[in-house]
Amino acid sequence: MRYDYEVIAEWIAPGEKVLDLGCGDGSLLRHLAEVRQICGYGVENDPEKLLACVKNGVNVIQMDLDKELEGFEDGFFDHVIMSFSLQAVHNTQGVLAEMLRVGREAVVSFPNFGYWRHRQSILNGRMPVSESLPHQWFNTPNIRFFTIADFEALCERNGIAIRERLAFDEGKLVLDEPNFLASAAVYRLGRD
């Protein structure tokens, strides 16, 4: 189980309606169903992952994350989650806006490209490869490269309220200098 699952579960109340964008094989939704009895739906566009969701007994809706959540009612969900997928979508601002349209709050986690090991790697002339960035430059699904500081600047610019932030260094909580010391961050976001 990924370490951000526990954090996310803390933010979800029992019985909530939860949407997980880029839900993969549905393991987060399954976890939340077990510990929080949520009414959960995943969005996934990869046929193999979608099949895995069906096998896992997780509700999954096939659609392209870069498209708007057209047809989804405003404010239907209590939480809309995007776990380690934001760096892989083109329409970053549109997706964030849609998450906060269909959900009361959004939960977003992503790898921090500003992590010191990544900076060190770049200084040494190579693109970073780590636990949070496991792919090589030539096969990575990631297309947006941003840091904790970059993300918070975008939230400020787009009127997105940061309600809570937890930063991690390969699974361990980081309290100081997260943009330098954390490999990943998890946010709870709302509308200003």
Binding site: K17, C39, Y41, P47, L50, C53, V54, V58, N59, V60, I61, Q62, E73, F76
Partner: peptide
Amino acid sequence: MHNGRRVSYT
């Protein structure tokens, strides 16, 4: 989905 039913769509 908007009725909270269990549904998958592919």
